[in-house]
């Protein structure tokens, strides 16, 4: 009897996305929640300075509304 062996790849759960630091919210959600374009800066500019990535916000560079969103 001929038996055709079919190799089946195991179904694994998707790998979790690797994120830096200890993210509490998804970056997209954070980007939406941060005031956009004050002092000519975008949320993406600001995201690089988020406290949960370890850097302290710069009071000279950040507008007050964005800075206080770190509290």
């Amino acid at each position: 009897m001929n038996v055709t062996r079919v190799k089946v790849a195991p179904i694994l759960p998707p790998k979790p996305r690797r994120v830096r630091g200890t993210f509490i919210v998804e970056p997209e959600k954070a980007a939406r929640s941060i005031p956009i374009n004050w002092a000519g800066r975008t949320a993406e500019d600001v995201l690089g300075n988020l406290p949960w990535e370890g850097a302290a916000p710069d009071p000279e560079m950040l507008d007050a509304a964005t800075f206080l969103s770190f509290l």
Partner: peptide, 11 residues
């Protein structure tokens, strides 16, 4: 408006 000024200046 205040919210647009740098935080250091607002302080």
């Amino acid at each position: 408006s205040l919210r647009e000024l740098p935080m250091a200046e607002v302080a």
